[in-house]
């Protein structure tokens, strides 16, 4: 469902992502790891079409995100790390706007919105202005906005910031369950314990280059000494003095 071919992004003289070749299949939970400034968010923005590649291409469900953006975006959902929302809309109005943008309409829409709000436990604050909500509530609302149109591919950028432990567990379980139903999840995070728990495959990026991909056991075996995913991550991304 996600494929990148020699995906490269250069900002001025800085190469943020270099020749990224990656394939994530249907129903797969792929976790993307890397230290700060490694190129994770740039990759995510390239996958979602918010940045244009310097060279190479990214395909969502077989559609080039630059060449056929509308077809690709119909399949895609994105949860950003900073949930900037329209502060002067209520949560329900925000979801109605998103439904309008995805041309969702009809008699069942109000129920679908209510159901999505309930799934992410924001139905109680759905008629309050977004500007009055806490960071965590906004994050949950951004999940609701993302999942409203039933995307087939969801790209998630460090989604745990601001969520309480109960919400983290709920979102984590929800994402995992949805992958069993065929959803493809591409998640960037620093929370390695969650990665160990949910990831079908892991990719590690450092200085714009994809160092390795594989299942968690495959990755942990790469370490010079047996250890946790954290140990391997630190070893792989260590900068030589």
């Amino acid at each position: 469902m996600i494929r990148t071919e020699e995906l490269t992004k250069v900002f001025g003289t800085k190469v943020a992502v270099q020749g990224l070749n990656l394939e994530v299949g249907r129903g797969e939970f792929f976790c993307f790891l890397g230290p700060n400034g490694a190129g994770k968010t740039t990759t995510i923005k390239l996958l979602t079409g918010l940045l244009r590649p310097t060279s190479g291409r990214a395909l969502i469900g077989g559609f080039d995100i630059v060449g056929e953006p509308l077809a690709a975006k119909r399949l895609l959902g994105y949860v950003p790390d900073q949930p900037f929302l329209y502060e002067r809309l209520t949560g329900r109005e925000l979801l109605r706007l998103v439904a309008g943008l995805y041309a969702m309409d009809g008699a069942g829409l109000a129920d679908r919105i209510a159901e999505t709000l309930a799934t992410f436990e924001v139905e109680d604050v759905a008629d309050e202005l977004v500007g009055d909500l806490s960071h965590g509530m906004r994050q949950k609302l951004s999940f609701a906005a993302t999942f409203l149109h039933e995307p087939q591919v969801v790209v998630v950028d460090e989604p745990w910031v601001g969520l309480d432990p109960r919400s983290i567990r709920r979102v984590r379980t929800y994402l995992k369950e949805r992958t069993r139903q065929g959803l493809t999840v591409f998640m960037s995070t620093h929370t390695l314990s969650i990665v160990e728990e949910v990831a079908d495959r892991v990719g590690v990026i450092h200085r714009g280059r994809l160092l390795v991909t594989g299942t968690v056991p495959e990755i942990t075996r790469l370490a010079s000494r047996p250890g946790s995913l954290e140990d391997v991550f630190l070893e792989l991304t260590r900068d030589e003095p």
Binding site: L50, L70, Q82, L85, V98, L101
Partner: peptide
């Protein structure tokens, strides 16, 4: 701008 992940990600030219 900062909310472009909503409008920009939607299948809207």
């Amino acid at each position: 701008g900062r909310r472009f992940w909503i409008v920009g990600l939607a299948p809207v030219p």
